[in-house]
Nucleic acid binder design. Sequence first.
DNA 1: TGAATATATAAGTATATTATTATATGATAA
DNA 2: TTATCATATAATAATATACTTATATATTCA
Lengths: 114, 114
Amino acid sequence: MNQHQLSIEQAASILKLLADKTRLTIVKLLEHQDCCVCEFVEVFQVSQPSISQHLRKLRDAGIVKEERRGQWIFYSMNTDNRVFPFIKHVLSQLPNQEEKLIALEKSGKRISCC
Amino acid sequence: MNQHQLSIEQAASILKLLADKTRLTIVKLLEHQDCCVCEFVEVFQVSQPSISQHLRKLRDAGIVKEERRGQWIFYSMNTDNRVFPFIKHVLSQLPNQEEKLIALEKSGKRISCC
DNA sequence: TGAATATATAAGTATATTATTATATGATAA
DNA sequence: TTATCATATAATAATATACTTATATATTCA
C-alpha cells in the first residue's frame, strides 16, 4: 500500500515544507542539479538571509544536504532520506524550472560563482 | 511532462492546503467515501467550527464539494477540478485512514447522523 | 409553531511563518 | 594580514494560520 511507511503526520510536515513557492522551486531545481546559495539568491528576488532560512528548513528536515566547495556552499537533494521517494513523487508532477538556471547562465550570473 | 499544466504557484497553494494534518486526513478519507461534517467532528478532537473552517478552505479551492442531504451536509472530492489528478497522486502515497471511520462505526457514532 | 439538531460565520487570540536589516563566521585573494 | 566575498545566524516586524467561544442560519420533528 504505502511502500515508504510515511504517516499522515510525517507527510503533512513534509508537505508544509514544500508548500512554499520558493522552497518548492528550490527543491524542483535540485531534483536535477546541485546549486549554490548565491544562485538561489539570483533566481528568487529575495534577500540572501531569506534563502538561507529556507535552505535551513529543508536541511533540518533532511530533504537537502550541503557541501562546501571553496568559498561556496552547494546544496543537493538528500537521496538517502526515507522521505525522498515521496518528494520525488510530488516533484514529478511539477513543471521543470530549469529555464530559471538557463536565464541565469545567459545573464552571466551563473558562472560568477560556480 | 506535466500532463496537468499545474504551475509551481498553483502546486504550492494546493500543497499548503494539504499540509495540515487535519485537512490531509479529511481529504484522504474523502478519497474513498463521502463524509458529513459531524463525522469529521467525531474523528478529530477539535470543535465543529474548526472542522467547518477547514472544509471551507478545501471547498473554496474547489478540492471538495458539498451536498445537503436532509439536515446533514456531505462532503466529497470534486473530481472535476483540474487539480484533482495532482491531489490523487499525493494521496496515493499516504496510508489509508479508513480505520478511523471503522472506529466511529463501532462506537455507534457513525450511524447517528448518516 | 417552537425545540432540537447540523452547520456556517464572526470575532478574538495565540502561535507560526516569512520577510527584512544587522551582524557574525569562514574562505579566498591581494 | 587585511579586504572581500559567500553564507549563516540573530533580532524584529508584518502577516497568516488555526484554534476557541458566541451566534446565526437552515432543517427536521413533535
